Simulated assay, not measured.
Amino acid sequence: MHPQPMIAVSDIDASRSWYRVTLGLVSGHGGHDYEQLLFDATMVLQLHRLDETHHHEPIGAAGTPLGNGVALWFAAADFDQATDRIRAADPVVVTEAHHNPNAGHREIWIRDPDGYLVVVAGT
């Protein structure tokens, strides 16, 4: 078993573009209501438009801030390359690249367009 997190977003196209440019993910589905984002042909994140209800209830409550209380954690095999890509994309940086002594690795903390905390970690 492995996780395939799905997050509610306000604009699939904007979020897809942000994750593509900032983390190097690629589209595995396409569309304006739902997206699967891949890294090395493996789905690592799903995006779902907040107000879309194809065959289920909405996955989030309208009016509630998106991203509250959620951290999306990505492990990067080449942390320096990942941080170079991140810096080139110029996202909102919450915590600059640093060594986390508790986890024993380096991390950078950023925000996506909907306010989700995105952490990229590596050695």
Rank of each mutant, 00 (worst) to 15 (best):
P5K: 05
D33V: 13
A89S: 15
D80Q: 14
P58Q: 13
T83F: 03
V26I: 12
I86T: 03
V92C: 10
P101F: 08
F79T: 07
I7A: 05
V21A: 12
L38T: 04
I12N: 03
A103P: 00
N68C: 02
D33H: 13
D78L: 10
A41N: 15
L37H: 02
P5A: 06
R49N: 00
I7M: 08
F39R: 09
L23F: 09
V44W: 01
M43W: 01
P101H: 07
I59A: 05
P65I: 05
D51A: 09
N102E: 10
L25A: 03
Y34H: 09
N102K: 07
W18T: 08
A62K: 10
A103N: 02
D80L: 05
L50V: 00
V93G: 06
L25R: 03
D80S: 13
H55Q: 12
Q36F: 10
I59P: 06
D84E: 11
P5V: 04
Q36S: 10
H48Y: 09
E57H: 09
L47W: 01
G60V: 00
G60H: 11
M6D: 00
G31I: 13
A71S: 13
E35K: 07
T64W: 03
F74E: 01
T53Q: 12
R85A: 13
E57Q: 14
G60L: 00
V26Y: 02
I86M: 04
L38N: 11
A41K: 13
P91H: 07
L50I: 00
M6C: 11
E96Y: 03
G28S: 10
L25V: 04
G69T: 06
L38Y: 14
T64Y: 08
M43T: 14
I59Q: 06
D33T: 13
G24Y: 11
L50M: 05
A82Q: 07
H54V: 01
S15P: 06
D11H: 15
A61Y: 03
A71F: 07
L72P: 05
G67R: 14
A77L: 04
A62R: 11
A103F: 06
F79L: 09
E57L: 10
Q4I: 08
L37W: 01
R87W: 00
A89T: 06
A75R: 12
A103M: 09
H55F: 13
G28N: 09
R87V: 03
W73F: 08
D13E: 15
D13I: 02
D78C: 07
G67M: 14
H99S: 13
D33R: 12
A71H: 10
E35Y: 04
D90Q: 14
P101Q: 08
H98C: 04
H48C: 04
I86V: 12
A76C: 06
T95E: 15
L45S: 02
S17Q: 15
L47M: 02
S17F: 02
E96V: 10
G28Y: 08
G67F: 14
A82G: 09
